[in-house]
């Protein structure tokens, strides 16, 4: 807004200067740029050159000593900042890459460890169950063997009892039928029959 006012003020005052342009009392012949012989123009042309040298020297001084080094510093600062930022970004990326690689290695290792742990656990469980199964088998086998021994014993005792019972029964029968029985003969006959039927 301030700039607009400055511009407006300039456009308002400039005509005043311009209208003074052709106020020359003596008319100018030909190009005013070359009117060195004209009483006022000639003087102004030389003055214009002198003032130009002063003004241009001022411009060069202002630019060389003050303005341009500062603008250059601004641009240089931006350039430096961008370079630094790029370098920082590069470093951060490198760091991230390293972290990523470390992470990948760690997860790989963890996976391997987990796999190994699972395998060990599986193995142990297998072994434990095998051992248990063997134990159970052994116990069952032992029980079976024991039971068979018991059965054999029972059968043997039962067989032993059969002989006694058969002998007694046969003696009783014979003594009832005949009145008397020879214990030794009966025992021998029972033994023969038992042997014949394969139960002795």
């Amino acid at each position: 807004m301030r700039r607009v006012f400055v511009l407006a003020a300039a456009t308002a005052t400039l005509p005043a200067m311009a209208f003074a342009a052709s106020s020359s009392a003596v008319p100018v012949d030909g190009m005013p740029q070359l009117a060195f012989g004209h009483p006022t123009q000639g003087r102004l042309l030389v003055g214009q050159m002198v003032w130009q040298l002063i003004i241009f020297a001022a411009l060069v001084f202002l630019m060389a000593k003050i303005a341009l080094p500062r603008v250059g510093a601004v641009i240089e600062e931006r350039h430096r900042r961008i370079t630094a930022d790029l370098e920082a970004a590069q470093a951060a990326k490198l760091e991230a890459d390293i972290a990523m690689a470390a992470h990948r290695a760690a997860s790989e290792q963890a996976r391997a460890e987990a796999r190994a742990a699972v395998a060990t656990a599986l193995h142990q469980a297998q072994a434990a169950s095998d051992a248990k199964a063997a134990e159970v088998n052994a116990r069952i086998t032992a029980q079976i063997a024991e039971a068979e021994a018991r059965i054999d014993a029972a059968r043997a005792s039962a067989m032993g009892a059969i002989r006694g019972v058969a002998t007694d029964t046969a003696e009783a029968l014979v003594s009832r039928l005949t009145g008397a029985a020879d214990r030794a003969k009966v025992e021998a006959a029972v033994g023969r029959v038992l042997a014949a039927s394969g139960r002795a």
């Binding site: 200067m17 311009a18 003074a20 342009a21 052709s22 106020s23 020359s24 100018v28 190009m31 005013p32 740029q33 006022t40 123009q41 003087r43 102004l44 042309l45 030389v46 003055g47 214009q48 002198v50 003032w51 130009q52 003004i55």
Partner: peptide, 22 residues
Amino acid sequence: SQFELSPVLGIFGDAVSFSQSN
């Protein structure tokens, strides 16, 4: 005539030939 010079800043400009060009 647009190229004609004329002093500005009144009598001071006239004295030192300071024109509107300057």
